[in-house]
Amino acid sequence: MTTTSSNRIVINTTINGEPIEFLADMRDSLLEALRERIGLRGAKEGCNNGNCGACSVMLNGRLVNSCCVMAAEIEGAEVTTIEGVASAEGLHPVQQAFLEEAALQCGICTPGFIVATKALLDEHPHPTEEEARFWLAGNLCRCTGYDKIIRAVLSAADTMAK
C-alpha cells in the first residue's frame, strides 16, 4: 500500500483470483472501490450501512458487506465478487438454481444472495430451511417474499451434493 499525495492510495490486492493494483481514495469503501474505481459493478449499493446485503462479497474466504469494509483494508487480501462466481465452463450450481427456481424478480438483490448462498453451502452443504433463512437474513429481497430464493438455495444444495 503506497500513500500518494492528498488522500489517494495505491492498493495491491487479488480480486477473483487476479492480482490487481488500483488507485483509491482513502475514504473509499470496498464497495465504492469495486464499483467506481475498478469497474466491477456486480455488487450493489442498497443501503450503504450493512443492512441489505446487496453488496455482499467474500473477503479472505469470509462473507462480508463490502460497504462496511474500507478499500484500504484489502491490501494484500483476496476478494471474490459475484463476477468471480461463474467459471469459464459455466454457471455455478447456485446461479443455475436461481434461474431454474425463478428466484429473482428485479434481480438487484441477486448478486448478493448468490454470493451469500455460495458462502453458506461452502460451509454447510446441507442446510435446513431454517438454517438457510437465518444465514440469509442479512440479505434483503423486496420482490420475492424469499420463498423461491430459499427453494433455490435448497435445490442448489441438492445439486452440489450429487
Partner: peptide
C-alpha cells in the same frame, strides 16, 4: 436471467 445471476446486468446505479 444469466445477466442477472452473474452480476452483468446493468442497472441504473451501474451506469458509467
Amino acid at each position: 436471467g444469466v445477466d442477472k445471476v452473474t452480476g452483468r446486468a446493468e442497472f441504473g446505479i451501474d451506469t458509467r
